[in-house]
């Protein structure tokens, strides 16, 4: 269980001093002013993870926000992307992609859809941070590097989103300049990616739980009218419940109207007739 990692990142101001000291320890050569500025950026990025699961529950939006927080947290970043893997499949299919800027989306398209090669794939497969400061001549990705270099993007930092037992995805951070991401940036990136992995995964658990309950509630709300329509159709023309349901579905598809709306219409018509008949007698 990994909740502790995430909780440690949303401590209040009291822990921020320790946090600044941690960052200063990471890079002893850094001026205290720069360390402080980096710490503030990282803290802002991590704080953004709070309230990550909004009312919209949209995974794409959630990941886009994480990408933006990453771009904010890592010094020198011009943009960032988050890739999420589908964990219930053995081939680690990509479940979702999100980017903080359009150029990141273009690069991810090249990486995943066109070439199936690049830093995020390496970071994910090897479960380690990878970076390059000169993508145009990068030997690790001989097709990806030059192509992205021609787009004017020369630096990348890829951070796997690691949980204790597996990798759930990766964060790609890009910069247009050369050699932008040094050891300090990589260390800050790792400080961000560890809780981000937990946050993204837990957010998924919560979003799925909410999704399940909404699905169940919607289904249970519409089931009574569908069943009443099934009973009505069976009473009129006989047949099984399955046959009546198939007829409802056929009407729904033919008219391009939701099943529940078709059922409601059928029941409403019958009820209208029943009330009229009651008034007559």
């Amino acid at each position: 269980m990994f909740g502790t990692n995430l909780r440690a990142t949303h401590a209040g101001d009291a822990t921020m001093t320790e946090f600044d000291e941690d960052i200063a320890r990471l890079t002893p050569g850094l001026s205290s002013e720069q360390a402080r500025a980096d710490a503030l950026d990282l803290r802002a990025g991590l704080s953004g993870l709070a309230g990550l699961v909004s009312g919209s529950l949209d995974l794409q939006e959630l990941l886009t926000r994480v990408a933006s927080f990453a771009a904010q947290a890592i010094p020198g970043a011009d943009g960032a992307g988050v890739t999420l893997l589908c964990l219930d499949r053995d081939d680690n299919r990509i479940e979702a992609l999100a980017a903080s800027a359009p150029f990141v989306r273009d690069i991810d398209e090249i990486q995943y859809a066109v070439l199936n090669e690049g830093p995020c794939i390496t970071a994910t497969l090897d479960r380690r941070t990878v970076r390059s400061g000169s993508l145009g001549g990068e030997r690790q990705w001989p097709r990806f590097g030059p192509r992205v270099g021609r787009l004017g993007v020369h630096s990348v930092l890829s951070l796997p989103l690691l949980l204790p037992d597996q990798v759930v995805g990766a964060i790609n951070v890009y910069a247009r300049g050369k050699d932008v991401f040094d050891d300090h940036a990589a260390e800050l990136g790792e400080l961000f990616s560890a809780p981000a992995a937990v946050a993204v995964h837990n957010a998924q658990v919560l979003a799925q739980a909410l999704n399940l309950t909404i699905q169940l509630q919607t289904a249970l709300s519409s089931r009574p009218i569908i069943d009443q329509a099934i009973g009505l159709l069976r009473g009129r023309t006989g047949g099984t419940a399955e046959e009546a349901f198939a007829r409802l579905r056929a009407i729904s598809q033919r008219e391009n109207v939701k099943l529940a709306a078709v059922a409601q219409r059928i029941v409403d018509e019958a009820v209208r007739r029943a009330r009229a008949r009651n008034r007559e007698t």
């Binding site: 502790t4 995430l6 309230g51 699961v53 909004s54 937990v198 946050a199 837990n202």
Partner: peptide, 20 residues
Amino acid sequence: GAFLGLATDLSWLAGDGGGL
């Protein structure tokens, strides 16, 4: 006690401003 950490994380992720 297995859910202690997850519960804390989820309540934090849900936040106060997201409607959840």
